[in-house]
Design a binder for these strands. Structure first.
Lengths: 235, 235
DNA sequence: TAGTGGTCTAGACCACGGG
DNA sequence: CCGTGGTCTAGACCACTAT
């Protein structure tokens, strides 16, 4: 049994995420939603408030409520990679695909990212370079059930990250940041010494509760940092 | 004019952040809060729900509501230290002050954090332990012009991070995360080998454009990670 | 000025789970 | 069992602002 406010939330989220409701489009006023769901205004309000908290909806008195989510996100993260951003501006960025294969997911890895073992995935490994210098190794898994178009995508022109952003809307992402020593392969690819510190970002992205992609991006620790600006939470 | 649910939220948040209410401690039941604030249960519920969303409170049917936030400095951030959160639950957390001194800031350091050279600061160095194992080194600068009360604070009972949270409201914070090799001092204090990977969080906090504090927290790379959940940004 | 969201009430019934 | 939170109602008044 799911609650009414949850159903309203889910319905509206789905409409926004699927693109049926475009950014800037007006959402039915609270009174209409109370009739549509046969519930009180407080219940509608609770769902809309949650959508505002997620940044998917904007509400304005006298004007109404509107879809706030941008369609293509400039950066999938609130944490921005300012190091690379700065370097890419006016400098040479390039990348190359190291490997690309359709696989079925082994149990251990499936458990790690919380999907069914044996799921069909596309596994991609890339090297990113800035000014000719290795900047990051990208190891990515794309769930083919969630992104069938990936099966025939070569990523010859567009990196998997950018391609996915345009292909699949996402509703949630989790990031884990770690400092780890470079293993032999990583050290060779990133032109560093084995055991040196690497900064690794692991990101898992969901769409409506279904995993879309899991990626680990490993940077040389001495050439990289993450930065983020926060403001106090409002309540 | 601030709303009732906002006042309740603020009051409870302050009690938790200041350490007056310790993690695991029970919060007054909703009925008591309705009497205390002379409002309806829905209003109390709204405030508590917001606190749950922020991860500061846990609610359990029949049992009550409890303070969920761990005491360590990870507060103030949307980035949560899940590694430490897990360990702190039911385990021993402690810290010790390694040094504490009032200084005038050298030009290089002043420039780095964007304040006037020669500013009077309190410099504090702490070691944080979880289960008796070193978990983090905290190197902190507190601007005495912004926080005069810090001059006489010993931090004997409360770590500087928690103390500052209760003392000074903040309006903006910037975080930078890096992976760096452990130097000799860091390696000794954190019981790791020199050169091993450390995860370092640098945080600068402002109040109305004026720097309040700058802190670098260094963790052992193999015992620590940051995690964060994001939703699509609003553009 | 009128329509919209922001907030609040004083109840109610239910689900859960600790004692 | 029964206290607790989870949810919901059918109103109400107010604040804001587009028109």
């Amino acid at each position: 049994m799911t609650s009414i406010h949850q159903r309203i939330f889910d319905d509206i989220e789905a409409k926004i995420m699927s693109g049926v409701w475009q950014p800037g489009q007006r959402i039915p006023v609270e009174h209409d939603l109370t009739e549509q769901y046969n519930c009180s205004r407080m219940t509608v309000s609770k769902a809309l408030t949650a959508l505002v908290d997620r940044g998917m909806v904007v509400r304005r008195r006298r004007a109404g409520s509107f879809v706030a989510a941008p369609q293509i996100d400039r950066t999938v993260m609130d944490i921005k990679d300012i190091g690379t951003e700065a370097r890419i501006a006016g400098h040479a960025y390039s990348y190359s695909i190291l490997s690309r294969a359709v696989e079925t997911l082994a149990p251990a890895e499936a458990a790690h990212i919380g999907v069914e073992a044996g799921s069909e995935v596309l596994r991609v490994k890339c090297l990113h370079l800035v000014n000719g210098q290795p900047n990051a190794i990208e190891r990515r898994i794309i769930m083919l059930a969630a992104v069938p178009n990936a099966r025939t995508e070569t990523f010859a022109k567009k990196p998997p990250g950018s391609w996915l952003l345009a292909e699949v809307p996402w509703s949630e992402a989790k990031h884990v940041i770690r400092a780890i020593p470079a293993d032999a392969t990583t050290a060779r690819l990133l032109e560093m010494q084995r055991g040196e510190a690497c900064l690794t970002l692991a990101r898992q992205t969901w769409q409506n509760g279904r995993t879309v992609t899991y990626v680990e991006i490993t940077h040389p620790g001495d050439r990289y940092q993450f930065a983020a600006v926060f403001h106090p939470s409002t309540g």
